[in-house]
């Protein structure tokens, strides 16, 4: 431990408070606003789709494009997931096959 117990606890509280601000803020700001605020209900309707798009890019943010061996495992696994999910529409199957395929690719194929 680099920090003392009290310092560590304060850091944990800071991370907690920071996180809670980002989670509670929208609910606090728009608490009083009526549900007929058309801009907010427009965002509520379409933002989830954009947010999942952002989340996908966020997960892939560290993928390196310098050499195909770095990005091919991600590309192959994601294409496989998309095809499988379009075809079977079974969430656990798509995730399971995609993840196992990715693990094989990074452990045995593109080392």
């Amino acid at each position: 431990m680099t920090l003392t117990s009290i310092e560590t606890f304060i850091i944990i509280c800071m991370v907690t408070i920071g996180t809670m601000i980002t989670r509670f803020l929208p609910f606090i700001i728009f608490q009083g606003s009526k549900s007929n605020n058309s801009y907010i209900s427009y965002l509520g309707q379409f933002l989830p789709y954009s947010a999942i798009g952002l989340l996908v890019v966020y997960c892939l943010r560290s993928v390196n494009f310098k050499s195909p061996t770095y990005w091919l495992p991600e590309a192959i696994a994601i294409i496989c997931i998309i095809v499988l999910h379009y075809w079977k529409e079974n969430t656990l199957l798509s995730i399971g096959v995609g993840t196992v395929l990715y693990m094989i690719l990074v452990q045995a194929v593109f080392i």
Binding site: I11, V15, I17, T19, T22, L25, P26, I40, S50, L54
Partner: peptide
Amino acid sequence: PLLAFLMTLMVNARHLFYGISML
């Protein structure tokens, strides 16, 4: 502690979108 607070806000800013989506 201030840096911890600000870094967390930065890293977790995307949660704002989740709140708006779930209002």
